[in-house]
C-alpha cells in the first residue's frame, strides 16, 4: 500500500507520453521524459543545484545557531524563566502555519532586497526549522551530565573549549539526527519557493515540479520523472539514516 503508488510514478516516468494518456494498459519503456528534463535548455538542472545549496546552507546555519544557543540555555545556568520563554516562543513558531507570516516576511525580505534570491529562501527555511533545532538540541544537551563541564572547566579549559572539544562531540549523534531531519524538511519545502520566486532557474526543485502541473495542461511524463528524481535521495536517506529520522519524528512529538 505504501510502495505501490510511489512505484506507479516511477513506471509512468519511464513511459512515452502517448502510452501515459492511453486508457488501455500499454507500456512503452523509454527515457524520453528524463531526456526532456535533463536537456541543457531545461531549468531543472539549475533547480536541483538550488535545492542542494538550500539544504546545505539552511541546515548549517540552523545547526550553528541552535547548537550554541541550546548549549548555553541548557548548561550555563540561565534562569528557568528565560529558558521557558525561549522554548515557548519556539513552540509557538513551530505550530503557526508559515503561510500566515508571509506578509511580514515579504516586507522584511524586501528591506534587504532578498526577495526572489536564494539567500532569501535560505533565511526563510532557517526561520521555520530553528524551533525544532533549538528544542531538540536543548534536550540532547540536557542529557549530558553537568559534572563533565565543571571538571573540564576546573582542568583549565575555557568555556568555548569545553563546549567545542567536550560537550559538542558528545551531542554529535543528536546533532546528526537533527541535521538530517532539517535537511529533509528544506529539500521538501515548497511554499516559500512558490511565493518568493518566479519559478524559473532561481527556484528550488519542488517549485519546478509544480510548474509542470498547470490547470490547462499537465505534463505527465516529465512531472513523474522530476518527481522520481526528487524522491530518490529522500528514500536513500530513509534506508541509510532510518534510526535518526525515526528519532527525529517521534521524539519531537513527545518532547514538544
Amino acid at each position: 500500500m505504501t510502495v505501490l503508488p510511489l512505484l506507479w510514478m516511477v513506471v509512468v516516468a519511464f513511459q512515452r507520453p502517448r502510452a501515459i494518456i492511453n486508457r488501455e494498459w500499454t507500456f512503452d519503456f523509454a527515457l524520453t521524459n528524463f531526456m526532456e528534463i535533463l536537456s541543457p535548455d531545461a531549468v531543472f538542472g539549475a533547480q536541483v543545484i538550488n535545492s542542494v545549496v538550500l539544504v546545505i546552507a539552511a541546515t548549517a546555519i540552523c545547526i550553528g545557531l541552535s547548537a550554541f544557543a541550546s548549549y548555553s540555555l541548557s548548561q550555563l545556568s540561565w534562569s528557568p524563566r528565560v529558558v521557558l520563554g525561549v522554548l515557548a516562543a519556539a513552540g509557538v513558531l513551530q505550530v503557526v502555519p508559515p503561510m500566515t507570516l508571509v506578509p511580514g516576511l515579504f516586507v522584511t525580505l524586501q528591506n534587504f532586497s532578498l526577495t526572489g534570491t536564494l539567500g532569501g529562501l535560505i533565511i526563510l527555511n532557517v526561520i521555520f526549522n530553528l524551533p525544532f533545532a533549538i528544542i531538540m538540541m536543548k534536550f540532547y544537551f540536557d542529557a549530558l551530565p553537568k559534572e563533565l563541564r565543571e571538571s573540564a572547566y576546573i582542568d583549565g579549559a575555557s568555556e568555548f573549549a569545553t563546549f567545542w572539544r567536550v560537550m559538542l562531540p558528545l551531542a554529535a549523534p543528536g546533532l546528526a539526527a537533527v541535521a538530517i531531519f532539517i535537511g529533509i524538511q528544506v529539500w521538501n519545502e515548497f511554499l516559500f519557493g512558490l511565493i518568493f520566486t518566479r519559478g524559473g532557474d532561481e527556484a528550488p526543485i519542488t517549485v519546478g515540479i509544480a510548474t509542470l502541473v498547470q490547470p490547462q495542461e499537465i505534463k505527465w511524463g516529465p512531472m513523474a520523472a522530476v518527481g522520481t528524481i526528487t524522491a530518490v535521495p529522500i528514500i536513500l536517506l530513509a534506508v541509510v539514516a532510518n534510526r535518526q529520522i525515526v528519532s527525529g519524528l517521534t521524539q519531537g512529538a513527545v518532547k514538544s
Binding site: 501515459i20 512531472m223 524522491a231
Partner: peptide, 26 residues
C-alpha cells in the same frame, strides 16, 4: 523502513503520485 517513506518523501511528490492515481484522464 518502508513505512517511513510517505512521511518524508517531498509533499509535492506525494501530490504528483496521487495525481497519477486520481486523475480522471490518465
Amino acid at each position: 523502513n518502508i513505512l517511513l517513506w510517505p512521511a518524508i518523501v517531498t509533499p509535492v511528490v506525494i501530490s504528483v503520485v496521487w495525481l497519477l492515481l486520481l486523475s480522471p484522464q490518465i
